[in-house]
């Protein structure tokens, strides 16, 4: 997440609308330049000059956007919180139960009576649930 935000052209490329608009303007500018040179080759000086002017203006506008556009980022609310799970085990019958973490849970806490025997279930693990989208290190 961090690396993409500090990469090249970070500010402008963050916003997909801006990026799409720049691609469209770039395509129009390129086509205008082509038309301009074609017309120049055919001797239509006034039309050629107009097209080239449009093309150059398009590229200038793109360059200007890179420097002046207000940076927009994907996450406006700051860091996301991870899902944490608590694993409880009964030391007597080895019953295992996994539930969402609740404030007040801690490892080795004798938490709740076992549903299968008379024992007390103990918190044996507390860990963040793996994000399936997370790439391996």
């Amino acid at each position: 997440m961090a690396d993409s935000d500090v990469g090249p052209l970070a500010g402008a490329t963050q916003n997909w609308t801006t990026l799409a608009l720049m691609v469209v303007v770039g395509a129009i500018a390129l086509a205008s330049l082509y038309m301009g040179f074609t017309n120049y080759g055919e001797g239509n000086m006034e039309t050629a000059f107009m097209y080239i002017l449009i093309g150059v203006s398009g590229f200038v506008a793109i360059g200007f956007t890179f420097f002046k556009a207000k940076p927009a980022t994907k996450t406006q609310d700051g860091p996301k919180e991870v899902e944490v799970v608590t694993t409880l085990e009964c030391p007597q019958c080895n019953l295992k139960r996994v539930r969402a973490f609740q404030p007040g849970d801690y490892i080795f806490k004798k938490d709740e009576p076992c549903t299968r025997c008379e024992g007390m279930m103990t918190v044996t693990r507390i860990n963040a649930r793996k994000d399936p989208k997370e790439k391996k290190d």
């Binding site: 935000d5 500090v6 990469g7 090249p8 052209l9 970070a10 500010g11 963050q14 420097f67 940076p71 980022t73 996450t75 406006q76 609310d77 700051g78 860091p79």
Partner: peptide, 21 residues
């Protein structure tokens, strides 16, 4: 320099959100 400043500015906004949070 201007390009680098832009990139620092983007990160700074992000850090400010983290700080505020």
């Amino acid at each position: 320099g201007m390009t680098m400043l832009r990139q620092i500015e983007v990160s700074l906004r992000k850090i400010k959100r983290y700080r505020d949070k």
